[in-house]
Design a protein around this nucleic acid. Sequence first.
DNA 1: GACGATACCAAGCAAGCGCTTGGTTTGTAA
DNA 2: TTACAAACCAAGCGCTTGCTTGGTATCGTC
Lengths: 204, 204
Amino acid sequence: MNQEKILQSLIADNLVSASDSARGRLLREAARLFREKGYERTTVRDLAAAVGIQSGSLFHHFRTKEEILKAVMVETIRLNTAVMQAAMSKATSNREKLRALISAELESINGQTGEAMAVLVFEWRSLSEASRAEVLKLRDIYEALWLDVLRGLKEEGALKADPFVVRRMLTGALSWTVTWYRPDRGGLTQDGLTDQVVAMLGLS
Amino acid sequence: MNQEKILQSLIADNLVSASDSARGRLLREAARLFREKGYERTTVRDLAAAVGIQSGSLFHHFRTKEEILKAVMVETIRLNTAVMQAAMSKATSNREKLRALISAELESINGQTGEAMAVLVFEWRSLSEASRAEVLKLRDIYEALWLDVLRGLKEEGALKADPFVVRRMLTGALSWTVTWYRPDRGGLTQDGLTDQVVAMLGLS
DNA sequence: GACGATACCAAGCAAGCGCTTGGTTTGTAA
DNA sequence: TTACAAACCAAGCGCTTGCTTGGTATCGTC
């Protein structure tokens, strides 16, 4: 199951919006703007202009501005969880699985969903309490994938530090790549970066 | 030279504000509020109320709201750079120096200056272009300290991955601790956390 | 070709924002 | 005691914000 097929099935189940639908286009532009200027500095007029409608018309699709932010986050987690599960299913050993996880997360952060992932990291505080709880539930599923593999590596003796701590360190380290890593601008490929991370953990 | 003495000398040189001065108190409250609610969601009325003055009176001390944000960041970097240089000067080997750096950065992120450090990470986009350049200059000095040590370790063969990449990974990993690590809430001490990071790098 | 839903527009409201203004109090030093 | 600057207050201006409202195209369906 490749990434395109995963996306199709999620769209069919109405779990994420097709990128050629009105909703999908809005969410993509919203992710871009939230990433670029921050949620608070992005006005509903900015959002509307980005998809070529009047600001009031936004509220036909979403009840509030915050609902747009939540949708960006929710759909991104759903997509990346599915992609990650698929990436892992091909691997056999825990070492391979970890590499698949790191590679997939780097891809989600620096690839197509990069803008939305950055929003997920930096705009957390702009979510209401209720939305936060909703997003957290989805994130827990995602995190469980990581912890299973890291615990396995710990038991094998390949990992010295605590799995929980390692995952949180990796979350920070990988998220942070969004602030400096430019896959296009030569030098380091995404695979090369994955190698570096694995090397840093002493697992290469 | 302990942390208190460093602070005194910086205050004497007018590089950071004394925490019992009007300016110092405002900056401390600002860091707290910016951290808690974000810069954009914090109003000048919030800031004024936090130090017990009228909102208009703020502008006697700072020309704009953004200048407050900049001051929080600038003073924090100045302080932490000085603390870090002191921490490193005691160490002899590069291994020890790296441990000192990690420990000091964890302290700055999770100790007294924690709120300001979080602001530095999460409110970057709220700075104007001009302020950003100013803060960046200071950060470069700070980063040079790290890169020197990491390059040394690489030459010794103790480090496998690229020093530049490792530093950026560590920046993310250590910054991220602010979102989950609670030194008070039992379990892991700050020294213990430092051990975990060193172990993760395979340098213990 | 009538109908109802969906998608949108044009206009603007109420609230909150950063910041200004003119004037008063407080602290300090000769 | 006087003089003066620094620190602050009370009031509010001009603008932007998220969102609402009442009405109009557009489109698939029978």
